[in-house]
Nucleic acid binder design. Structure first.
Lengths: 152, 152
DNA sequence: GAATAAAGGGATATTATTATCCTGAAATTA
DNA sequence: TAATTTCAGGATAATAATATCCCTTTATTC
């Protein structure tokens, strides 16, 4: 029902980056501060997103991280497949190794349609959508007293 | 997206118990064996389900565990609220502490309807339903070579 | 009453996840 | 070239989840 903390940080960070002007590297430190998330841990996550091809990273003075692709072309699904593993949507609710339409656990038939809705949602939502929602000011990216959705 | 292993074991165990004649205590050892799950760990889980009011436990020779209520009156939701915590369905997908209709994370609006479907499903499915599904022979409770759904 | 079988409960061990630390490498600026 | 800034990467630490162990209590059987 819930994502790992790693995924939560990753999603928040990616959405935040999508709210920033592209091509201008964003610092891990800044993201961590805005999201109120442990910086060294976030660094590891961003590192793995770079390896996974979603981010570009730059060292040195004007360094930081940029979205490698256009925010509109990155889905939540793509992102979560990196952080949760490539087939995180396929696992059986009861933990069975083999649970398909042919040989299933007893909740399978009821769970399947919901799972498909989840998958569709994850595929449909892009970072651009989410960034826009945040920039509109109606949605928040973090539990913070002071708002973080500036420049639109 | 996925339940804790504890919950998975709990659900499997409860469904299994619901397939057994009521009033006749079932041994932790037997459940563990059938489900292919570590017995000492399962024992802790069953213990907490007893404390939670879903099971009755009996010590001594003819001891074991019984469903305290009729299988038809126990929903998956009830069970999972014990193993995952009372408001496990309310947590924000992105991990925000406060994420309600008024002040929400950017995925909230898309997630909400799905979450409600999940909640409805969990409320609607009873142990009796699931036990019946298993007893029909068309669904499995564990990753086992030899079938476990005997007596109907 | 003694032996046996089961759950109860506390302590401990193992593993995975989350988080921190430190040093090095790359880039920029002066 | 030297100083600074930032990510890279490895090692380590802290925490939480999962799993095991041991001993006690309770009930049954003999």
């Amino acid at each position: 029902m819930i994502l790992s903390r790693t995924s939560q940080y990753a999603v928040q960070a990616m959405i935040y980056m999508a709210t920033q002007p592209p091509e201008t590297p964003v610092l891990n430190k800044d993201i961590a501060e805005r999201l109120n998330v442990p910086a060294p841990y976030l660094a590891k996550i961003l590192q793995s997103l770079s390896k996974g091809g979603l981010l570009s990273s730059f060292r040195g003075r004007l360094g930081g991280f940029c979205l490698r692709q256009d925010a509109a072309s990155v889905s939540l699904m793509q992102l979560l497949q990196l952080t949760e593993g490539p087939d995180f949507t396929q696992s059986c609710l009861l933990g069975l190794k083999r649970c398909s339409d042919e040989t299933a656990c007893p909740v399978h038939v009821r769970w399947l349609p919901i799972k498909e809705k989840v998958i569709a949602m994850l595929n449909e939502m892009s970072l651009a959508d989410l960034a826009l929602a945040v920039q509109s000011g109606r949605y928040r990216l973090a539990d913070m007293p002071l708002g973080m959705m500036a420049e639109a």
